[in-house]
């Protein structure tokens, strides 16, 4: 009995870890370019939609989902940046930035740095995986 239970667990482990390796493989394909987008919105929401017992990811997910399906939400692009693998950078910035938008542009610039670091962490994981064991 113990052996059967163990075998089932082992199969699940193998299959689950296999999926994780697949996921990493997909990430490598997408990592060739980097896109950073910053929006501002006047979407009406209740605080309880977003925050429940601190920060609840599921609630935030719902807000994000709602934003994408409700076409009447007023969402304005503040900036968009695309960084290609060959370091080509394209940026689009909203016209006539207000003072609040200027703050968001600063946020956008910082997010480009963070995005690069995030991608770097992922690439390091991949190189660690394929480099020979020490």
């Amino acid at each position: 009995m113990a052996t059967e239970v163990n075998n089932e667990g082992k199969e699940k482990l193998k299959s689950g870890l296999g999926k994780l390796f697949q996921k990493i493989g997909q990430g490598i394909e997408d990592a060739a370019s980097l896109e950073v987008t910053t929006f501002t919105g006047s979407f009406e929401y209740k605080v309880s939609d977003v925050v429940k017992n601190g920060v609840d990811k599921v609630q935030i997910e719902n807000v994000l989902k709602n934003l994408t399906v409700q076409n009447d939400s007023k969402l304005e692009l503040v900036a968009f940046t695309s960084v290609k693998i060959d370091s080509d950078v394209s940026t689009i910035v909203k016209k006539d930035l207000s003072q609040a938008d200027e703050e968001l542009l600063k946020l956008h610039k910082d997010m480009i740095t963070s995005a690069k670091e995030s991608r770097q962490a992922f690439i390091k994981l991949v190189t660690d995986l394929i480099s020979p064991a020490k």
Binding site: K23, Q26, G27, D30, A31, S33, L34, E35, V36, T37, T38, F39, T40, G41, S42, F43, Y45, V47, V50, V51, V55, K57, I60, E61, V63, L64, L67, L75, V78, A100, E103, L104, L107, H108, M111, S114, A115, K116, S118, R119, F122
Partner: peptide
């Protein structure tokens, strides 16, 4: 997902595996 809220102000950023980031600000002050 990283979220920062204060009163009616809110900022949400979503990081994806390949490094892409989307941020949405709602009345966010400095």
């Amino acid at each position: 997902i990283i979220a920062t809220s204060s009163g009616r102000e809110s900022l949400i950023s979503k990081f994806q595996l390949d490094g892409d980031v989307s941020s949405i600000a709602f009345q966010a002050s400095s």
